[in-house]
Design a protein around this nucleic acid. Structure first.
Lengths: 221, 221
DNA sequence: CGTTTTATCTAACGGTCATTACATTTCTAG
DNA sequence: CTAGAAATGTAATGACCGTTAGATAAAACG
């Protein structure tokens, strides 16, 4: 049973607001002033609830990863490699331009610049990107074992190619590209797959849409 | 005839050093302390020679753009669209991992995060990216007019796809990917072109290699 | 030589950064 | 009602940011 004065704000809501700030500004670009303003609290409350800025950021990454893992689970359960790629590209294009959310990808946006090379935050971000890349690699290996992917295709390289296109799309989105434009990019990437098999129309299965829980719309100033 | 005390450092050398810092740290991540240390001068000399940090950055962008324009001129003079893409992908993979230079692309690295959305620096970076994209678009349009590119291909969309892959490769490089890994990515992107025409082996023409004039090797600390 | 002009160095400027004392408020437990 | 515990708001901390006075040093010109 709670002792002492109860917390006057909702932790999840505040974390969602903080995630939105990190998403738009990057890790180092997000100042405590902007974070606390968006969260509607003062610095001592932030430190009491989340530790410090870095731990708050890790919590935001975790929250973002939860939403995204739903999306990736749906991606990886696709029956063929071609459909895996179709879901990745189309889903990324859509989730990078969800109305009411920041553009691009929190992970891409947070770690690209503005952090020392040997920084622990930068290593964390790289590790998370690598984790996804390894998951995609494993999926391609399985597809290869099942004969779903041509035997001359290297799963590691193909996953890296996918990672490059995905990050490129995220960067375009962060720089103001519209949804239709990114969809065109995704369609080109799909039309030119190395797998080159079946599955022309498979958009019937409804898609988790990867809506991350960023509540506040823009918070411009 | 020179009046007053002569400058004790070489402007071009100092600018090259500054470009290397911006390349590694991004614009906001590069502090005056690190810049002046790499350039071997003190803040007043920097301000006397270059104005301020932003103007120094623009000068570094110009210097970087000179080197890169050689590369892109060589890219755009390729006889077919397929070879244009091959040169882009292969050349980017190489120039993103030139030994003795920072990884990735100065423009991608500088503007991704850590700058306010309505900042003039961010707009400048986006404008430069868009300029290249428009140049590639024009080249594809020409290829389409010449029958070199399939008539159902949209040059704008294809250029955006290229931009995405290129920026994705640059991000991978900035996060420590090796040259061979990026070459694999480029090969996949090439193997899967929408143009799908001729020109299997055209690596004989020697390539300007896009070596930007960054002198100092790493300058770790 | 002295004067002028420019570059240099040291040291500081105000501003913002992340972080935290400290006193106060608001709850539960007895 | 009182005592203890936890969260709050105000305001400060030292460190770093980009930038700049102000004094000094080194060159050309008379």
């Amino acid at each position: 049973m709670a002792l002492g004065r109860p917390r006057s704000f909702d932790t999840d809501t505040a974390l969602a607001a903080a995630m939105g700030v990190f998403w738009r500004r990057g890790y180092e670009g997000a100042s405590l002033a902007e974070l606390t303003k968006a969260m509607g609290i003062n610095p001592p409350s932030l430190y009491a609830a989340f530790g410090n800025k870095e731990q708050l950021f890790r919590a935001a990454l975790d929250r973002y990863g939860e939403r995204r893992s739903e999306f990736f689970a749906w991606v990886l359960e696709a029956p063929t490699a071609r459909e895996v790629l179709e879901r990745i590209f189309r889903g990324t294009a859509e989730s990078s331009t969800t109305p009411g959310e920041p553009r691009g990808c929190l992970v891409v946006q947070s770690g690209t610049a503005c952090s020392t090379a040997d920084d622990s935050v930068a290593k964390e971000i790289v590790a998370r990107r690598r984790g996804i890349e390894e998951a995609v690699t494993a999926r391609f290996q399985r597809a290869k074992d099942e004969g779903d992917l041509a035997p001359d295709v290297c799963p590691v390289a193909l996953a890296r190619y996918v990672s490059a296109v995905v990050q490129g799309i995220a960067l375009l989105a962060a720089n103001g590209a519209e949804r239709e434009e990114l969809q065109q990019v995704a369609e080109i990437a799909i039309r030119t797959l190395p797998a080159g098999q079946s599955a022309s129309d498979s958009r019937s299965a409804q898609e988790p849409a990867m809506t991350a829980g960023c509540i506040e719309p823009a918070n411009q100033h």
